[in-house]
Every structure is written in C-alpha cells, then in structure tokens.
C-alpha cells in the first residue's frame, strides 16, 4: 500500500507517502505548520484548528487529513493567516500571556500576536493541587487533550480527562489511580501551555 505520491502546498510541488497526514507531509519536506493540540502524537488532534488549510479548496485540519495523490493544499493565504491570528487571540483571551516559554507563547510570538483583541472579564479559575505532585492551572488549559494521550501512552489510561462541555470544559484527574513520577513527568511534559507542572517542594498531597 505504501507508495509515493505528489501533492502541492502553496504552489510548491512536494512528494509524500501514503498513510501520512498533510501536516506530516509538510514536516517531512522541512516546512512547518503551526499546531498545538496534536503534539508529537500520531492520533488525536483536530481540535485547536491552528493547522487549518484549504484542501482542494475546502477548510480542513491538516493534522488529521490523510494525504492523497494530486492534493492541492493552500496554507499561506491572507484569510488563513487572519484565521490563525483569531484562533490564537481567542486562546490568549482565555489564558493570558505567560513568560514566553511555552509552545502557545512561541506560536503567538511567531505570528506576531502581542495581545488579544478579545479581552474579557476573566472568570477566576483556580490553580489546583492534583494527585501526586501535579499542579493544574485551569486558566492556562486549552483542552488540547495531549495530557490524556500522554497518560494513555504511559499506561495510565483514564488518569486524566477533559470533562464537561462548552465553556465548562476543564481538566479532571482521578486521584484513585496509582501513578508513578515518570508517568507524571511525561504528562506534564506533554502540556503546550504550562497549565500542568510538578511541584517539587512537597511530596504527595498537602
């Protein structure tokens, strides 16, 4: 089944192979497409919509769209640039700016988004002590689900989950699940916004 195929990204002729997503195809050609929710995982994605491109003229998330022969992908258009800015500003309106060390801030810097136009009265979301040494800053969480997938990969499926719906979505952790520090570290490392960190000062729950 695995065969080479040719496709175009913004008039650039590229080759890829079957089974890749459009985003993987672009990355294998050394081009970078911004994305937050996919991370380094093969599955999931399609939620932050930052990677949206026009695939044969229709808007699609490139991180989940399979590459096909003769596919025509537009990415660097004025409309899509505006879309990406708007999406980032929506996220920043919720998260606020951090110290510029997270993936979210890096994307913002790369697109030159200084501040969100959509400033709104911030609901005071708590910073919560989770199981083990984990600390959850709910305001910074963008519900990308990367921590869920990291937990799955580390054999702790069901430890962390995005629950609720609409505006009420938030991160939930199961304190009944036994989890080791290596696994916690992997989960924290998967977070693109710094919403999760490990508190080294104390051991266990206060």
């Amino acid at each position: 089944m695995s065969g080479a195929l040719s496709w175009t990204l913004d008039d650039r002729r590229l080759s890829g192979s079957r089974g890749m997503t459009v985003l993987e195809g672009a990355e294998s050609a050394g081009l970078s497409i911004p994305h937050l929710c996919r991370g380094c995982f093969k599955t999931g994605g399609g939620r932050c919509r930052l990677c949206t491109g026009l695939i044969n003229g229709r808007p699609r998330a490139t991180c989940i769209e399979p590459l096909a022969e003769g596919m025509r992908v537009e990415f660097d258009t004025p409309e899509l640039r505006t879309l990406r800015r708007t999406l980032l500003e929506i996220l920043l309106a919720q998260c606020g700016k951090d110290h510029g060390t997270t993936e979210l801030d890096a994307e913002a810097a790369r697109m030159g988004v200084q501040e969100s136009a959509f400033a709104r009265a911030q609901a005071c979301l708590p910073i919560e002590r989770g199981p083990g040494q984990i600390v959850i800053d709910h305001a910074r969480c963008i519900m990308c689900g990367r921590c869920e997938r990291a937990a799955d990969a580390a054999g702790a499926a069901g430890f962390v989950r995005v629950i609720g719906r609409g505006e009420g979505r938030r991160l939930w952790m199961d304190d009944q699940v036994q989890i080791d520090n290596a696994c916690l570290g992997a989960i924290v490392a998967a977070c693109p916004t710094g919403a999760l960190r490990l508190d080294q000062s104390t051991r266990g729950k206060p």
Partner: peptide, 18 residues
C-alpha cells in the same frame, strides 16, 4: 447555538461565548 455546543474545538468553545 451556544447552548448546543460541545466545546471540542477552539472556535466554538472560545469564540461562541465571545
């Protein structure tokens, strides 16, 4: 529409309340 949304993607979850 906002009351029917699931909140899975950013435009809906963050955009519709705005």
């Amino acid at each position: 529409l906002h009351a029917e949304q699931c909140g899975a993607c950013v435009p809906c979850r963050g955009g519709l309340p705005l």
